[in-house]
Design a protein around this nucleic acid. Sequence first.
DNA 1: ATGTATTAATTCATACTATGCATCAATTCG
DNA 2: CGAATTGATGCATAGTATGAATTAATACAT
Lengths: 200, 200
Amino acid sequence: MVEKHGLRERKKQRTRQALIEAAVRLFEDKGYDHVTVAEIADAAEVSPRTFFLHFQAKEDVLLANADVRVDLALQAIAERRAGERLPEVLVRAMDQMIANTWDSDLPSGLAALRARLAASVPALQARLLQRYLTAQTELAQALQRAFPDRLDTITASALVGAMVGAVSASALTALQRGDGPDEVRNAMRQAMALVAQSVS
Amino acid sequence: MVEKHGLRERKKQRTRQALIEAAVRLFEDKGYDHVTVAEIADAAEVSPRTFFLHFQAKEDVLLANADVRVDLALQAIAERRAGERLPEVLVRAMDQMIANTWDSDLPSGLAALRARLAASVPALQARLLQRYLTAQTELAQALQRAFPDRLDTITASALVGAMVGAVSASALTALQRGDGPDEVRNAMRQAMALVAQSVS
DNA sequence: ATGTATTAATTCATACTATGCATCAATTCG
DNA sequence: CGAATTGATGCATAGTATGAATTAATACAT
């Protein structure tokens, strides 16, 4: 999961990071729709073609580190602790993702920007939801592996779908009525608890 | 909710329908990515520009009648029957949507095509999920209106998010393992029951 | 019935996303 | 040091989506 080679890989990550930072700055400055990929590349001092070498689409530059969070949750499920029951594992997995968001993207302002844009830019919202869905599939499989005799495939995906659906819906609702970070987090917790009790 | 004017509106709906049918036929024939908007317009004997007059994007031609289903669900919630409790109303609303899909899009083959493509074409999947989300917002508001003293805004959106998330995740899982229509519907019911019991 | 207002559809132009392909230049490795 | 790998670039192009101006058919008021 770490770097394979030295200099070459480091340079690659540096341009990647430059692209992300340029994009964030420009998005905050001019708004998502008024920034073109060409501008981002220009600000990061690379060719426009290079942008698509690092990101599949314009939207992905804002979802760059989402995979890390999914991995955390998967790990949380795989490392099921002794005596831990289904709802506890699920809640802990979600908590991992939320916690990572809060202390890695919140200080940089990336979380706020992403939240704001996800609520206002349809293309980004769609892409984010799609990411959630693919993450759900992985989470459901991991959960089924952790509770093989309790969960069938459908129940596992339904459960994870309910959890992710509830948490993201409540978060979005909180965001859209102008709640701050703490209130958003509370809304997410509330949603988690609601779903968790359905399997208690 | 019905037609306002006569001939003009009828003609408009006719070209709209022609676009949908042309698109479905071409998608089935050549695959989603290998069909351009220009081809669809051509097959429907209209200008390419006209396509975007009826649909916001290429993907939307396959999600044309989704709004009708949402309206059905909203109606189901608004017409809360005497003595009906929260889970019953929610289940009935979801059932309305599912039933409508089954007896309006299933015979025409549209449901199957959409299901197949939603599972394989990222752009379409993303768009579909986004539609679900906006529908969720409306459903949550309606639900809160129906149970004003029982539900706060966050709980309402969490509940609807859980329901929609669970149902769509289980449906997609069933689809992806090759289940037929009946098995998919059973998966959806199972997911509904799971979430419904969390508020019983 | 006639003139006026709407509006669906067309035409033309254009911005932008995204991808393919050939090439260059730097780094890794034998 | 020489060869292979690979990140970055330049060029070309398909395709989505939108804006603006125009046309022609429908709707409506008198």
